[in-house]
Amino acid sequence: MKSERANRRMMTRLSIFAVAMFGFGFALVPFYEKICEVTGINNLIKPAAAVVNTQVDKSRWVTLEFDANAHGLEWEFRPVQRSVRVHPGEMIQIEYDVRNNGAKAVVGQAIPSYGPKHAAPFVKKLECFCFKQQPLQAGESKRMPVQFVLDGALPADVNTITLSYTFFEVKGASTAPAKGGVQG
């Protein structure tokens, strides 16, 4: 049997290993973030890189439907147009209306989702209210644009894309009116 000291040394090493693994759990957070960034899995609320091919494909029509939800917020949130028919390659701008019916100022962040899911990378958003956090004073209303180009490489079987935004409350964010430019 080895000495007490060997046991203590072993305990120290294993404890350090356990603490390091606790740190490793947190290190997974930036690691996954990087993977999503590199593979483009989760670039939903970032502007698309410059659109290179702007050739309009007049032979093809795609319908875009718009949806709006507010999660846990007393906000009235809806698209101005329910749907638009577009050609791939066309520059499109649509608008959403939002109004804070609550009694206090709140900051919201909109998260988009797409149906079908695999159409997401082909909707190239150039401008979107979802690129930054939106502070709304009590009773304030806003009209917010979304500007996008539909990529011509969109799979041929996709004729309709539903773009749905959900506003979530960002707790603890400053509710001062936005001066623009600051990305959320």
């Binding site: 356990a18 693994m21 606790f22 490793f24 759990g25 947190f26 997974l28 957070v29």
Partner: peptide
Amino acid sequence: LVAVMPVLAGAVTMTLTDRHFG
């Protein structure tokens, strides 16, 4: 156990701070 129990502790700690500490 020594390798993965701390990772679970980290995950629930993140849940806890998401719930209460912004």
